[in-house]
C-alpha cells in the first residue's frame, strides 16, 4: 500500500493504485511523441547561425535548447523558428 499512499490523490482506504480523482503527473510527451506529427522538420545550419536565440524564444514547445539542439522527439514542425530566423539559418526539410 505504500505506493498507493504516495500517489497523488489516492488514499489508503481506496485500496486502488488509482487516485480518487483524475490526478496527473507532469511528463514530457503527455500527448505522446508529438514529433510524429511533423511533415517538415527544422534543421539549423550552424555555419550561418548568429546564435541570436530567437528560435529558442519563439518555440511554443520549448524544443530548442541553449546549445541549439532541437528535440525531434517532440518538435511538431510548426516552422516558427525558421520563419523568425533573421539569418534564414533554419530550413524546413521534408521528413
Amino acid at each position: 500500500m505504500a505506493e498507493t499512499e504516495n500517489k497523488p490523490g489516492s488514499t489508503a482506504t481506496e485500496k486502488s493504485d488509482m487516485p480518487i480523482t483524475p490526478a496527473s503527473k507532469p511528463v514530457n510527451g503527455a500527448a505522446g511523441k508529438t514529433g510524429t506529427w511533423r511533415t517538415f522538420k527544422p534543421v539549423i545550419e550552424k555555419e550561418s547561425c548568429k546564435k541570436c536565440g530567437l528560435c529558442i524564444l519563439y518555440c511554443p514547445e520549448a524544443c530548442i535548447d541553449k546549445e541549439l539542439e532541437i528535440d525531434y522527439e517532440y518538435c511538431k514542425g510548426c516552422g516558427i523558428c525558421a520563419n523568425e530566423c533573421p539569418t534564414k539559418s533554419i530550413k524546413m526539410e521534408r521528413e
Binding site: 499512499e5 497523488p8 490523490g9 480518487i20 480523482t21 490526478a23 503527473k25 507532469p26
Partner: peptide, 13 residues
Amino acid sequence: PHALNTDDPVTYG
C-alpha cells in the same frame, strides 16, 4: 492527499 501542492505539481481533473 489530493490537495493542490506546489511541492508536488499535479494536474487535477
